Computed example of a mutant assay.
Amino acid sequence: MPLLDIRNLTIELDTPHGRVKALERVSLTLNPGEIHGLLGESGSGRTLLAKAIMGIPGHNWTIQADRMMWDGQNLLDMSTKARRALMGSEMAMIFQDPISSLDPTIVVGVQIIEAMPENKALPWWRREQDKRKTARQWLHKVGIKETQKVMSSYAWELSDGECQKVMIAIAVANQPRLLIADEPTNSMEVRTQAQIFRLLSKLNQLHNVSILLISHELENLSLWCDRLSVMYSGQIMESGPTADVIAQPYHPYTKAILDNIPDYSNPELHKTMMQTLRGSAPSLQHQPIGCRLGPRCPQAQKHCVNQPKLSHHKDRYFACHFPYYNEPSHDEPLTKS
């Protein structure tokens, strides 16, 4: 049974210009112990999806879905108190903006200790000391050397990179069943980025933590993720095993992303123009009808004014009327879900 199963999630936002669909019919499945990558550019709706899973919607949101199941429980039927308890124990999220996510009036050490589970095997008079020791260990694991100094500092006294590391320590200290990492290595140097990804991979392998890794960097997702979902302008374009998606993309948007990756093997290619899609991503107030990639898509035809349904071919899912795939044989039909 999937740990997280979302079908046809739609999020509408009330704006001064009227109601707009920020997410439209988004489906996502996350299995236990899986690292699932969510690829998309800024404004594609990745963070909205993550916040909807965590149960922290905005005041102007309207959420609809065929189902949002967490380990057999319907998230849409849960009370606010139950969702909050679930978020504190079984789900955790590394937010993209760490400074605004930390409390500026409380030192960092207290915030880490508050997020840690209680070790009831220890006598009550040793639990506080044990928590402080464990908190310093988590800070060291995420790449902070002066752990005691950071523990006694406020968020506004730290740099963006240090705040990001603190947020990661808070998220992983509770060892949740699901960790949502929204651009977890922003404002970090390359060496520290590799250390963070190794830590997340270790959590996944040793503690069976499922991870939803959100990023706009395909290179990182291809190295660490088992499965990959590609988002564009509030819709899922394609989903499947990472190696298969990279080897043979079905959706034109996925192919455009792969074609845009620089080829460093040829020293002359840096002088040539990179392949890009024409135009730019539409705003929320001016979304095209049907497939939202339609006005920019090299495969677009008249039929694309109708929104494509999510098609299923083997272990791959894609939403496109004219995908890049070989026609299936008669004994292996293409199905629509």
Rank of each mutant, 00 (worst) to 15 (best):
P2A: 14
L3V: 07
N8A: 12
I11G: 07
L13T: 00
R19Q: 13
A22Q: 06
L23M: 02
L23H: 00
V26H: 08
T29L: 10
G33M: 06
H36C: 01
L38G: 13
G40D: 01
G40H: 12
E41I: 10
S44H: 07
S44G: 14
G45F: 15
T47N: 01
T47W: 07
L49I: 02
A50T: 05
K51Q: 04
I53A: 05
G58M: 11
G58S: 14
G58L: 10
H59P: 02
I63F: 15
W70Q: 00
D71R: 00
S79L: 07
T80Q: 12
T80Y: 09
A82Q: 11
R83W: 13
L86W: 04
M91Q: 14
Q96S: 13
Q96I: 10
Q96P: 12
L102M: 01
I112M: 07
M116N: 07
E118A: 10
D130E: 07
D130T: 03
Q137V: 01
E146L: 13
M151S: 08
S152T: 12
S153I: 02
A155P: 04
W156G: 11
W156I: 05
L158V: 04
E162V: 13
I168T: 04
A171E: 02
V172D: 01
I180S: 01
D182G: 00
E183T: 09
E183H: 04
N186V: 10
N186T: 12
M188F: 14
V190C: 14
A194I: 05
A194Q: 04
Q195E: 07
R198W: 11
R198H: 11
S201C: 11
L203N: 03
Q205M: 05
L206S: 13
N208Y: 11
L221P: 00
S222D: 10
L223H: 03
R227D: 07
L228D: 01
M231Q: 05
G234S: 05
S239K: 04
G240I: 01
T242G: 03
D244E: 07
I246Q: 00
A247T: 05
P249Q: 11
Y253I: 00
I257L: 09
I257R: 00
N260L: 07
I261C: 07
D263V: 14
D263Q: 08
Y264E: 04
S265H: 11
E268G: 09
T272G: 02
Q275K: 13
S280T: 15
Q287S: 05
R296A: 10
K302Q: 06
K302R: 01
C304L: 03
C304R: 00
C304T: 02
N306M: 08
L310H: 02
S311M: 13
H312W: 10
H312P: 02
K314I: 11
R316A: 09
A319G: 04
H321P: 04
N326Q: 12
P328M: 09
S329C: 12
D331K: 14
E332N: 15
L334D: 07
S337R: 03
